[in-house]
Amino acid sequence: MFDDILHIFYPRSYTLGNGKEVKEKFNPFPYLLILFIAIVIGLSVFTRVNLTALIKRGNNFFDIVRAMIPPNWDYWPTMEKAMLDTINMSLLGSVFGCAVALPVSFYLSSNFKLNKIYLVSHRLALSMLRTLPILVLAFFFRTVLGIGAMAGTLAISVFSYTICVKMMYEYIETLDMGAYEALESTGASRLKCILGAVWPQVKGFFLSTFLYCFETNVKSAAILGFVGAGGIGLNISGQLTLRRYGNLGLVLISMTVTIMVLEAVTRYARRKLVTG
């Protein structure tokens, strides 16, 4: 029994009937598991993970949740505009971001053999921009532009731009360039070749990417209000601080319904676009 446990850590060897000795393959998994657990414990100490506090005071969390039920329906007129703004900001941001991204993504695809240095540097700048959370962008724009939906819309635009460009150029690079070559042979300029031969193949994917951006942006737009960049986030943080949990409950219900409806609609539309 004890021996069996030990053998988890080093390979057994067997002596076969014919006197041959066979060694099991060394399995690093137990060592990696111990290392992993050590890291988790170390980081837990570092971040002061405190399970007793969670168990003892976990009730507070559920007290908040319980206080949200029933939601306060009278709050709707107050939050209606903010809820609409959240959807609008995300729609506008996705429209602007993707509209700018579309021509740029052709420029950043390696199939058209454009300037290599420009291509690499622009892509690098984009992936750096992508590492910044949307909230940091929003906070920055709020500082520059002042409080309001403008800052949030701009942040969503920049964010959508970085996502859309990346998805688009990766897609364009997988395309068959035969049709492009065929148009080139008729004496069409590069721009006309792209419009005539590549754009029809990209159109569906672009619209589907736009819908994806729109859908995910609604969720991001909901937190932008935390830094005063417009939308429902202001209501969430405000009502939470004021402990008006019934109001918060209504906000959360409308968010859930909105997101579920949007997900269903965009899933349907994207399936249509990809197959049709």
């Binding site: 971040t47 993970v49 005071r57 908040i64 943080s237 968010m255």
Partner: peptide, 25 residues
């Protein structure tokens, strides 16, 4: 799962700060 996903994570942030106090935990 759908309800969990619908809420912005920062909201959970505030709720947990109210529950276990400020800080990395």
């Amino acid at each position: 799962i759908t309800i969990i996903r619908a809420f912005p994570s920062l909201m959970y942030g505030i709720m947990f700060v109210k529950t276990v106090g400020t800080g990395a935990f």
